[in-house]
């Protein structure tokens, strides 16, 4: 791969890592989706008690958190690509990407609160 003379400050840093991460996180999400649909189908729909019991299970909490973490990283790569394609001025792109990262980090915190916070 030919490296550009100057790296772009808010580019993708020309790495293979994010391309691979997009695939790995997708596989994690597919696995969780199948697990989730399987559990719901197994129960034949869940009332509030069964729903709560499901999310009280430590393993399921961890699986859910892994799914959300994969989702948030995947969303970052995708949203960064969108800003790189359509938002050219640095003064707009940088704050926009900052806002996206802030939202994703906030979602991660929210998820931890839902999964492990006291109810």
């Amino acid at each position: 791969m030919v490296m550009p003379a100057k790296k772009h400050l808010v580019g993708a840093h020309y790495g293979l890592a994010d391309w691979l991460a997009q695939r790995v996180t997708a596989v994690v999400m597919i696995a969780y989706t199948l697990l989730f649909l399987g559990v719901v189908a197994w129960h034949g729909g869940l009332d509030h008690g069964a729903w709560r019991a499901l999310f009280a299970h430590g393993g399921f909490r961890v699986a859910t958190f892994l799914f959300v973490a994969a989702l948030l990283y995947h969303a970052w790569v995708g949203m960064r690509n969108i800003t790189m394609d359509y938002v050219k001025p640095l003064v707009v792109r940088l704050p926009l990407q900052g806002a996206i990262v802030a939202a994703l980090v906030a979602y991660a915190g929210w998820t931890i609160g839902i999964l492990w916070g006291g109810r």
Binding site: H48, F55, L71, G78, M79, I82, Y107, W110, R119
Partner: peptide, 21 residues
Amino acid sequence: GALLFLVGIPAALWGLQASLA
């Protein structure tokens, strides 16, 4: 993808929180 980020993620988290509360 953009739709899932802008609406999907916050809606899913809000729904999960409300349904478990």
